[in-house]
Simulated assay, not measured.
Amino acid sequence: MRIVFLGNFANYWNSESYYALTLESLGHEVRRFHDDAVSTLELQQAARDCHLFIWLHWPGTPCGENPSVPEILDDVRERGVPVVAYHSDLFHGLPRGAVLKQDQAYRSLTHFFGADPETAAWFEREEGTVGRHLSSGVFLGDCEMLPRTVVDGGGWARDVVFVGCRAYHEEWPYRPQLIDWLSETYGDRFTHVGHDGTGLRYGQELNQLLADAKVVVGDSLCLGYDSPGYWSDRVYELIGRGAFLIHPHVPGLERHFRDGEHLRFYEYGNFAQLRSLIDEFLENDEERETIRRAGFEHVREHHTYTNRWTEMLRVMFGDDDA
């Protein structure tokens, strides 16, 4: 299949690059176009004989420097070729959700897949677009458990780790509260990894960090903590790279992971329970390793972008009775 992919290809460590590599691993030809570096003529020519057009566009921003993109997408759609977006972000309940609904460029989509179930449902209900709730995942090529770095005659490099930036959505004050609590509770046993922590980690460097950590604590934006179905991609990214993860229970997440088998859940906001779990698994090496390996195998088999794109292609080109 010939696929045209318009998005942000400024660096390797982003969704566009992972999606393109996944589709190529499935045997498809992917032509990548960086959104503000492609000419109208180049994009028109590529779109004429494509079988699928993927467009990742942040709502409310111009279509790169190319105002003809919506027209090109409309032409592709009129030929019966799917025009698809797949977003791992939460929109519903945030200001960017309203911006997305006002963004006329999104009217060119034939399919919208998203980790945010409310936004996917809105597309289907209001726009006549095929909208499907589809959680995020992790790139299969990054699913690797590295051997840990042994320090001090057999010790661990890190005890408790959080991966993610402290500066986050103002609608989600829990993130900085959590990081501050971890820092105050565990002191120099805690490592905060992020641009406002010890720095960002990508690729094998991130995998090694997770291999060297006893316990990794997760977080997910979940407004009101009563909206089922959306959770951050970090749960797949971290477990799929070899982390033992303690994560707040988000409604619906139990459909993907079993508590005590793939990870450990704690009740959102219950820091006493969180501390009890962290302290337990800092000492319980055998059970921690059993859960870590079972979670890793589960993600690698069921929750990679290979799984997700296989499902999306089925919906777009196969029989879909949903």
Rank of each mutant, 00 (worst) to 15 (best):
L56P: 01
L56M: 14
H57L: 09
W58C: 06
G60F: 09
G60E: 08
T61A: 14
E65G: 15
E65Q: 12
N66D: 10
N66F: 01
P67Q: 14
V69H: 03
P70N: 13
E71F: 12
L73P: 02
L73R: 09
D75G: 09
V76G: 07
R77G: 12
R77D: 08
E78K: 14
R79D: 12
G80V: 12
V81Y: 01
V83P: 00
V83Y: 04
V83I: 07
A85S: 15
Y86K: 02
H87P: 00
H87A: 13
S88F: 09
S88L: 08
F91S: 03
H92R: 13
H92P: 00
P95I: 02
P95V: 00
P95M: 07
V99K: 04
V99G: 05
K101R: 15
D103V: 04
Y106L: 06
L109F: 05
T110Q: 06
T110N: 10
H111N: 01
F112D: 11
F112V: 00
A115I: 02
D116S: 08
P117I: 09
E118C: 14
E118G: 01
T119W: 00
T119R: 06
A121Q: 07
W122L: 05
F123M: 11
E124A: 15
R125F: 10
E127Y: 13
E127N: 15
T129L: 05
T129V: 15
V130W: 12
H133G: 03
L134Y: 03
L134Q: 10
S135E: 12
S135W: 14
G137P: 09
V138C: 04
V138Y: 07
F139D: 10
L140N: 03
D142N: 15
C143T: 04
C143Q: 03
M145L: 05
M145Y: 01
P147A: 15
R148G: 08
V150W: 06
V151F: 02
V151A: 08
D152H: 12
W156G: 06
R158G: 05
F162I: 01
G164P: 02
C165Q: 13
R166V: 10
A167M: 04
Y168L: 07
E170L: 14
W172G: 01
P173N: 04
P173V: 00
R175H: 01
Q177G: 11
L178H: 00
D180I: 02
W181F: 00
W181Y: 13
W181V: 01
S183D: 13
E184H: 05
R189V: 09
R189G: 14
R189W: 08
F190G: 06
F190M: 08
H192V: 13
H192P: 08
H192E: 11
